[in-house]
Design a protein around this nucleic acid. Structure first.
Lengths: 332, 332
DNA sequence: TATTGACAGGAAAAGCTTTTCCTGTATACT
DNA sequence: AGTATACAGGAAAAGCTTTTCCTGTCAATA
């Protein structure tokens, strides 16, 4: 059942080298011999042994992607895009879930390194030192996707988070809002950037920063309900809330409706990412990230580097899109 | 930078065989020698070459999971669970997205076969013939997770879909509903089973089948809006709708609210799967699948088979849970 | 004391492919 | 006609680990 190249070579009356050349197209082989070899290959459904090949070519055509959590919508879609692109270029993708645990990440990477992957896509925001440890552990080409690590020299693909947040808030300003609260994920560069964009938009509109309108959630999902209550207790209640992630926006809308507020009737809510948006009522206005494009571009960038193509572009910024739906109303 | 076992052996003053034995614990080695070897291993951050090892052991510690779509919530969570369990047992997971395209699936599997994976978890519902083709293409242990292929002899893990659907409809009956519509995914065994459960519950309650209350959606996501309109135009309008998937339930609720109906005020909606449920308002009553348990069990089953442990249990049925939230109201 | 057994460790083969170097033939050119 | 060249194909090495078989030593038992 399990034949090797020598067997096929014998059956076709040629040397193993010739079989290899036919299968890899690495050198001209006469049409007649080629046909003879291919016939035997098909007949026995022969496929070269992965390990023997890898041993000599030092390639596995396997890349890995490290994600904080494979099952959240955003990352699941990026991974899906990476997988698709990779398959088109004859690569397979190993996923590693790390649940935000750096120790687990290192262990995962050791594991991955042992599997001798050709490259790594990182979807998980690491500190510069963590990234350095990673590079030390597994010495392969790496690409960051939708992750900002300021000091890092690794190539990356993503959007301009600050500008996008700024665009979102500018939109809210344009339709007449003045008291705009902001909800952000604390402890992540991405959150910091989006907050910076929010602040810049307000500053450029001549509105001075109001700390009581800013909420920082501890984790990326969910935030303190008390923070929201405090927001609503303010005498100068905000008329709109910019949420730095759709998950935050969904929680926000639910909390607001649970408290008897109407969205967008009483309060407008703006999201970020464009996941979940269509299932929700009201349909969420949000910053649409080109998720599939990010995944595809990250994959291409990585594979180009693996295959030694020169890759001039280091930080790739893809365009976001301000997507207006039903969750924000114009002030009159 | 890239050392091999011979180098480490020289540094430690032993033979390659001894280094191998120390690292694999495959034979007793004296404490002194062990320490000497480990010191060199750490010093040079040595890790055995994956391919050389695989070439001789005929193992890769790589399993693959084939999913219709990695990015839908249900499969993303199963994959997450599989990945986690696999990592605990020192395996990595390759994901293959096939988007319901059997040709793509075969190609993917050829790709995977070339990578010499140790096993396969199938999340995608195949026909018996497709499964047979798969087995022919890639000859490794396989497990079905949350997929029903009636004729297949492959081990599987999942819930009792028919019973679960029956439980759901019984619940609706218990709280007083009599006109209960059903929305199902056509063309899948899972949909057929859930429909059978729906019909059984009605039959056992002495309610005769009403074809006009049954809607079959073409794809697993989304369904014809006209079908719903037809449902609502009925003079004997249903008071509850059992949807055979949460996605269907979400669409249903949105359509109903868009048409001015209240859920659950005017019409109750019941879901299946328990994904999406908490973000939604009203919070969706649904059949909760033990998704993480299914993924974990499928992984364990597969790895046990790979490692040659005897696996007596062939079809593993895990308990589902009827989860009552806010989307169904009792009839008075 | 002699023999057996246990045990630590070494030598070498096996596992399978790719690739380099080489050979021999046929063609083209001088 | 003779030489140079191109080209198809073969032989063999390289790539690195695991594992089997073997050796030599030490301890234990008769």
């Amino acid at each position: 059942m399990d034949h090797n190249i020598k067997f096929i070579a014998q059956r076709a009356g040629v040397s193993p080298a010739t079989v290899s050349r036919v299968l890899n197209g690495t050198k001209r082989v006469s049409a007649e011999v080629t046909e003879r070899v291919l016939r035997e290959v098909q007949k026995y459904n022969y496929r070269p042994n992965f390990h023997a090949r890898g041993l000599i070519t030092r390639k596995s055509n396997l890349i890995a992607v490290i994600a904080p959590n494979v099952s959240d919508a955003f990352h699941a879609r990026i991974i899906s895009a990476i997988t698709r692109r990779a398959a088109e270029r004859d690569y397979n993708v190993i996923v590693a879930n790390i649940y935000g645990d750096f120790q687990r990440q290192l262990r995962s990477c050791a594991l991955l390194a042992e599997r001798s992957i050709d490259g790594l896509v990182i979807l998980h925001e690491n500190t510069e030192e963590e990234l350095a440890a990673l590079v030390r552990e597994v010495d392969v080409p790496m690409v960051l996707a939708s992750v900002n690590v300021p000091g890092s020299l690794l190539p990356s693909v993503g959007i301009d988070d600050e500008q996008a947040a700024c665009d979102a808030v500018n939109y809210l300003l344009r339709i007449g809002h003045r008291k705009i609260a902001g909800v952000f994920c604390a402890g992540q560069t991405m959150g910091v950037l989006r907050k910076a964009g929010y602040l810049r938009a307000l500053r450029e509109a001549g509105i001075k920063k109001a700390d009581e309108l800013i909420v920082e959630s501890e984790t990326s999902m969910g935030f303190g309900e008390e923070a929201i209550r405090a927001l609503l207790r303010l005498e100068a209640r905000p008329t709109a809330v910019f949420c730095a992630a759709d998950e935050l926006a969904v929680d926000m809308i639910n909390l607001l409706t649970d408290h008897g507020y109407r969205v967008p009737g009483d309060i407008s809510v703006f999201g970020f990412d464009d996941v979940n948006a269509t299932q929700l009522r009201p349909r969420l206005s949000t910053i649409a990230q080109p998720i599939e494009a990010i995944g595809g571009a990250a994959c291409d960038l990585l594979l180009d580097r693996i295959e030694g193509k020169c890759v001039p572009l280091v930080k790739q910024i893809l365009p976001h899109r301000l997507t207006v739906r039903d969750s924000c109303r114009a002030m009159d």
